[in-house]
Design a protein around this nucleic acid. Sequence first.
DNA 1: CAGGATCCATTTTGATACTG
DNA 2: CAGTATCAAAATGGATCCTG
Lengths: 120, 120
Amino acid sequence: MSVRHPGVSTDDCPVREILDRVGDKWSVPIVVLLGERGHRFNELHRRIDGISQRMLTLTLRTLARDGLVSRTVHASVPPRVDYELTELGRTLLVPVRALDEWAREHRDDIRAARQRHDAG
Amino acid sequence: MSVRHPGVSTDDCPVREILDRVGDKWSVPIVVLLGERGHRFNELHRRIDGISQRMLTLTLRTLARDGLVSRTVHASVPPRVDYELTELGRTLLVPVRALDEWAREHRDDIRAARQRHDAG
DNA sequence: CAGGATCCATTTTGATACTG
DNA sequence: CAGTATCAAAATGGATCCTG
């Protein structure tokens, strides 16, 4: 478990590698919603407050590229595209929810720390 | 547990709030190293591959402001400053390590998905 | 409906040189 | 040793308009 002279580079720090992928502004909200159930494009657009069409497109594209989200085009008029988590994406929900739980438990601690800091 | 019409805004999504804080390029590596033991400034600088003095300073300052890291100045010549996780910071280590574990287990899956995607 | 294409503003990060 | 200060580059995100 221990290493001798552990530098932390991106290569040695897989968690940084995944934060480079889902640490952006919109990936986690998308993953969380898709964890609930599959969604269509505009459904996500409506439910994610503040996201632009552009960022929704880009983020979904990256998530699909990384194998976390699947994109299913139904040949119909009007077009219909469904997004859902892949199996890999669903495994990611576990640590994401752990982080979410931590966040809910400790957001006030962080806010309080900030206020103390900014006051003093 | 369930909500009726759950939009996802930053306010409703605490996990996004903490990713805004530790989702940057250097916070997690720093937290991980400090989770091992306390470190001095240049010790961190040496162990974190590629970080600039400036980013180390800025990131440590933010982590301290958020109450995740403590900064202890020893009045000595040459100066000595020790950084360590606060108790709050240590609790963060739990979900961060969960994410780290996920990353170690699945980084190859993501890489493979990328290659498939970029090939096809 | 589900995007694509442009252009622009902001944020984040890095390089470099200097200091108590 | 542990930072500051300044400047520039790069990544990220948003607004707006257009289309199969």
